[in-house]
Structures are given as C-alpha cells and as structure tokens.
C-alpha cells in the first residue's frame, strides 16, 4: 500500500453502465465491446464514451487492448459483441469499413509513424486533404486556391514549412510524427485517434507535441490519445482512462487514476 492511497483523493469512478443519454450525447460510444483472438480476449466488455470537443488520454499496460480498441473504432477489426456508435448514436461503426469510417470523420495516427515516404511532405498533405476521393475524378484533379490556403495553414500548425519539398522518408522520426498529425488535420476529422505520438521523441519534441494536440483540440476536434509517457499525459491535462485486460480499470483525472490502487498494481508500479 502506498502513501498516495492514504491521501483523501476522490476515488476514480468505477466503470459505469451506459445509458440512452450517453448514446445520444456522445460523439463516440462504445458499449460492451468484446473482441477475441483465438480465445484471447483482447477487449472484454469495453464501454466508454467521448464527447464532442473532448480530449481524452488512454493509458494502460502492454496488451491492455489499446490498439485493438482503435482497430475496432476505425473498422479494421469487427467486434464479436457490443455496440460502437458515432455522432450521437446515429452511425453504427461496426457495419462500415475503414474507408467509410475515415470519410465519416475519424482519423487515425499509427503507433509507428506511417507517412508516404516516397512523396514530398507537401504531397503527403495534399493526399490527406479532405475532398475528392474517387479514383477516376482524381486523374484530372487540379489543386484549388482554397486547398492551397488550407495546406499553408496546416504547415503553420505542424511547423514543417521549410521541409515542404523534401521527401517524407527523409524526415526525422519526430518530424514524421508531426507530418502524420498534419495529415490527420488535413482530413479535418471530427475525431482523431492518436496512438503513442511521442514514442521516440526528445523531451522538447514531446512538450511541443502536447502543445500541438491541445491546439488541435481547441480548434474543435475531439482527440483520443493513447500514450505511455506519463509526463506527456500530465502535459495534456485531460481526463484519463486506464485500460487493463480489455476493459476500463479506472477513469478520471490523472491524479485520480494514478491514485487508484488497481492502476498502481497493474500499471504504474509501486
């Protein structure tokens, strides 16, 4: 037992049952989502909601189901059981594929930075920019002035302007992470799912990334960040959800969650 537990910190809320109200008010709504791989329960009746305009951090030990959760939301994995709804319960995500979900307005950043390495930085943004996605129409596509303005805006945000015409493959690790976040911005999603954005970054880069994500959130995008780096999560200053063995272990502010005995036991260590 640690000293922290002795402090009169408000206990983290236990996972609560979903209600009709949660469904219609939430941007993203997961209820009782279960995913099994060869008998292993990657997600076990996982339930939580993300409100419009909210930023949420998700922590948890390896194998807690963080990436599987993202796979379910983005249509890469179909849940065995449970509901996944978007836009106040109007859209059932379990019925859609990756492309349809991306078009709805859910953007995803992978754990390993995944940019189009043999394209220039600016072409990466052009490809991600919200707009025409049809194959035949894009044979004759010309960049509009509006799109050019939007791309310049994104360069302001991700601070990669001087690298616009370099190949994305030539960027440093941290720059690739930012480029990928910039590509998400270009998609202009309602919800950004960001998987370990600061893995492998220097302290300065980590702080800048926290600032960048706060800025993105302030501009009206909902953000879900999966991260191990507790300093970074603290920098974000948002509600935290701790996953363990495929379900929610604790939810609340970082202080509340890190005071939770079970969280300390399975994740933070003593």
């Amino acid at each position: 037992m640690t000293d922290t537990a002795a402090f009169p910190v408000e206990a983290a809320e236990p996972p609560k049952a979903m209600t009709e109200k949660n469904l219609t008010e939430a941007l993203l709504y997961l209820d009782g989502v279960t995913v099994t791989f060869d008998g292993f329960r990657a997600l076990n009746a996982l339930s939580f909601t993300v409100d419009a305009g909210e930023m949420r951090a998700i922590i948890g030990p390896n194998g807690a189901g963080k990436t599987t959760m993202m796979d379910v939301i983005t249509g890469k994995t179909r849940p065995d059981k449970g509901d996944v709804f978007f836009n106040g319960g109007t859209t059932d995500l379990t019925k859609l594929d990756e492309t349809e979900i991306a078009t709805l307005g859910i953007g995803r950043k992978f754990q390993k930075p995944t940019v189009f390495e043999s394209h220039t930085v600016i072409d990466n943004l052009r490809l991600a920019l919200k707009g025409q996605r049809g194959a035949l129409a894009n044979i004759f596509k010309r960049e509009t002035a509006q799109e050019r303005v939007k791309i310049d805006e994104i360069f302001e945000t991700i601070r990669l302007g001087e690298h616009a015409h370099r190949l994305a493959g030539a960027l440093s690790h941290g720059q690739k992470q930012w480029l990928e976040i910039g590509m998400l911005l270009a998609q202009d999603p309602k919800l950004l799912l960001v998987d370990e954005p600061v893995a492998g970054m220097t302290d300065a880069e980590t702080a800048q990334t926290a600032e960048l994500l706060r800025e993105i959130n302030a501009n009206g995008h909902s953000v879900v960040v999966v991260e191990h780096d507790m300093t970074f999560v603290r920098d974000l200053g948002v509600r935290v959800l701790c996953l363990h063995e495929g379900s929610v272990l604790a939810e609340g502010t970082l202080d509340q969650v890190s005071a939770n005995e079970r969280v300390i036991e399975v994740y933070l260590g003593r």
């Binding site: 890469k76 991306a102 189009f116 043999s118 025409q132 194959a135 590509m183």
Partner: peptide
C-alpha cells in the same frame, strides 16, 4: 504524376494508411 497516381504510389508504400485516409484502395 496526377493526383490519382500519387494515390497509387501511396498504396504501394502504405496501403493501410491510404484506407484510413478515406480512399477506396
């Protein structure tokens, strides 16, 4: 060299990323 072709090259290099960007690969 068209936008279409840039998507093709993107598919070659990172097909999953292209799907998550909203293109019908």
């Amino acid at each position: 060299r068209s936008h279409f072709g840039k998507v093709l090259i993107a598919i070659r290099d990172a097909e999953t990323r292209v799907r998550f960007t909203g293109y019908r690969v």
